Simulated scan of single mutants.
Amino acid sequence: MLHNHLVALRKARKGEGGFTLIELLIVIVILGVLAGIVVFSVRGIQDRGETAACRTEVKTVETAVEAYYAKHDAYPTSLDDLNGTTDPDDKFLRSTTLEYATLGADGAVTGAC
């Protein structure tokens, strides 16, 4: 009696679809590969962003140095000269907290881009 009932249940479920363990593992592996691709793609975008920020900062400081030279006929000796610390009328930069650009003694601007 119990055997007949189990056979009937098995026949009733035979047409139902489902996922096997192998199919689920394949899906997990595919999702892992896609996640790895996304992580490496995002890292490349971030690196390009930092390079662009560096170049922009160097160009901004170069422009400030040129403006300072045009006004004073001499190059600034420090970044404080460019942001108006020594003279409030000479505010060519908003701040001297720069990440990438440095100012040399001869007014040359360098950056590690």
Rank of each mutant, 00 (worst) to 15 (best):
L2K: 05
L6K: 02
L9K: 02
L9I: 06
R10F: 02
A12Q: 04
A12G: 02
R13F: 03
R13M: 06
G17P: 04
T20S: 06
L21F: 03
L24N: 01
I28N: 00
V29R: 04
V29H: 05
G32A: 07
A35L: 04
A35F: 04
I37D: 00
I37P: 00
V39Q: 04
S41G: 09
V42F: 07
R43W: 05
R43P: 03
G44D: 04
Q46W: 09
Q46M: 08
G49I: 01
T51H: 09
A52F: 06
R55L: 13
R55C: 10
V58K: 14
V58E: 12
T60H: 12
T60Q: 14
T60D: 13
V61Y: 01
V61Q: 01
A64R: 00
V65F: 07
E66N: 11
A67G: 12
A67I: 05
A67P: 00
A70L: 08
Y75F: 06
P76N: 13
D80C: 11
D80G: 15
T86Q: 09
P88N: 10
D90G: 06
F92Y: 15
R94L: 13
S95K: 08
S95Q: 10
E99Y: 15
A101H: 01
L103M: 14
A105I: 14
A105G: 10
D106K: 14
